[in-house]
Write a protein that binds this DNA or RNA. Structure first.
Lengths: 160, 160
DNA sequence: CTGTTGATGCAAATCAATTGCATTTGGTGG
DNA sequence: CCACCAAATGCAATTGATTTGCATCAACAG
């Protein structure tokens, strides 16, 4: 474990969805406002980094619920467009809370040693999507882009 | 299943590694030239698309070996830099044979319905890596980029 | 030909994620 | 405040990809 990676987040979400917004969004989708759901959303609201189901489950304060419930809820929240799922290729899904109207499209720079995550706004591939559509006849094109490398902390650790 | 996706490959590898090159590469890494190994490499040589362990195992002609052996061999071949692993986010690893000296860096456009794969040469993110290194102090930066969409065949199927 | 080392088969173990099922609970209309 | 229904949950069992322990085999170097 390394300390809180304060300075590591490049893109700071300006608007953090409020609890009332979130419950409204749930209600609109005829989803129940359960204690587990609120606890999970609170964990996500407190973290600006992508979290795994297990991490979310571990971070639940006060209210405990089954890990399966966390899994089910994150799938539901993803379907409703309230969270975005990321895949860093390590076989574990990670999630970030989205603000309404924001599709949360961005990418990450992940340290291959300590998994520190930096958010990246740049997204050249988006410019390519139209070209690819024209060239290959594909429609509804999207993409996933993740960067990997060794973060400054890990580099010095190696030297020490 | 759809027929052989002949015209789907955009980037055709000009040099397909020869069997002798491959065995030489194995020998150089003090790896034994076993029948399973040869059979696996032959499967990879015959396909220009990324294949899963299971697909490779199923495509083994004549020589049969355990699925665990296929898994072990692809890990070994990846370590040796003879194959490249791809991750389309569906929880299954895929592999492509590499030519020596070619790091096989490229990306894919995957149909979200039938999994048809088109190779993509364009790679804007590479230009970004240096900038990211400077901006965030990361080193040894690499990236993974995959495009997803609905291929022409699947689009018409939907209409039919 | 023979020893050493890597490779293999087979079964069991991991690990993330999902699911069946009985039970509980939020939200709604009385 | 009460009754009802759909959604949600706990718990255990399952799935599916991938890995691993272990005993046996087979390359290949000398």
């Amino acid at each position: 474990m390394k300390g809180p990676c304060s300075q590591h987040t490049h893109r700071h979400r300006l608007i953090q969805p409020s609890l009332t917004d979130l419950t409204a969004q749930l209600r609109r989708n005829s989803r129940k406002i359960t204690a587990s759901r609120q606890a999970i959303l609170n964990v996500l609201r407190r973290h600006q980094h992508p979290l795994t189901n297990r991490e979310i489950h571990a971070a639940l304060a006060g209210f405990e619920c089954d890990l399966a419930t966390v899994y089910r809820n994150l799938n539901t929240l993803e379907e409703m467009g309230m969270v975005r799922r990321f895949d860093f290729g390590d076989g574990v899904a990670r999630f970030e809370l989205l603000t309404e109207g924001d599709d949360g499209h961005h990418h990450h720079l992940v340290c291959t040693r300590c998994s520190t995550v930096v958010e990246i706004e740049d997204c050249f591939p988006a410019e390519l999507e139209a070209a690819l559509a024209a060239r290959h006849g594909f429609t509804q094109i999207s993409h996933k882009l993740e960067f990997f490398g060794v973060c400054p902390e890990c580099r010095v650790q190696k030297l020490a």
